[in-house]
Amino acid sequence: MWDFGRLSIVAELIRDHIYLESIDEYCEKTGVRKKDFVPIEAQDFGGEIFAVDGSNAAVCNWSVANLNLIRAGFAVYRGREWQRTTITYDDVFLADPRICEDLFDPCLKAFFGLKGIDLKESDLDRLSTYFRELQEYIALNEAIIEARSGDIILYDGGFDVFEPLRSVLAVIFKRAEDKDVDLLAVSKSSTLFWGEGLTLPFLQHTSYAGSLFVPGVPWYLDLKDKRVEHGQGRWNGETYIARFAGSSERAFRVDAPSYVRDRIGSALGKLVAHSCSSECLGYPHALFRAHEDVRISGQECDLLRLRLMEMLGDMGMSEPHVRMLMQDFHDVLDMRQQI
């Protein structure tokens, strides 16, 4: 057996740096002050909230191409009443650089009036991620079309995106502004860090600071001019940290295009009024529902894999042959029954 030497070093590290005893250093290093935490007042809201989400699950992985199931869509709420869920894409995606443009280009052209984007250098995993994001943007676009002036459109994720798709977001921002809707991206996970030596989790520490400075109320914090890397300048908007319910411990990263900046308090106020459900306290409920409705279950992937096997069988391929092609050797090692 090994001893726990290295484990205890990690434990020490966590205690000394990640677990904050005082927030002085955090404040000093990041420039965050007590007055930066702006309490949010819940606001009545008669319009609709659209929440866009996507989901991506691997059906099978070959070394030369991956087959994924991708789904994107949005849930629509008026107040606390779910209105509908629209699924805009629900199909497989074959990640192969040679056919990528056949899948991306028609969408880019039809929905955003853009010419193709260059994906030749991307690896296979990236390809399906891009495609999923593209489908989420198409869902966003559809939501903007269906929305009326004053409505809120939420996106599950962030707007600080990979280069190839930034041009798509720019079109979306413009359309959202023209339609006069509040477009906000809410991230469940965030890659914000502070500190020079060790990278420390900014979101969690900000959340902690918030509960000390403005306990028991929802609040938001504007990251403009704060010393934390959040992709500022790479896209046309601002990043905020927000807590949507006073009694919740969690805070979220919120990205908003720059045209929302001067009404961000009221936009977040409307969200606060709809982040108090029993199903998911402290998180905008529409996003919770979108996540539930769009999520791809393991069962669905299994079914699809079986169906594919069947089709191959119908086309005259023998099962051992298919198995040889489709089975991932990890699954063999782990003794998982994959196909």
């Binding site: 779910w82 869920t85 629209t86 699924i87 805009t88 899948l103 028609p106 039809a110």
Partner: peptide, 21 residues
């Protein structure tokens, strides 16, 4: 294969499914 795929993509471009109460 690509032309087959292309027409499939084109056809499904504006498909959507709406689930209501």
């Amino acid at each position: 294969f690509r032309s087959k795929l292309g027409s499939e993509v084109e056809k499904a471009l504006h498909d959507k499914k709406v689930i209501r109460k």
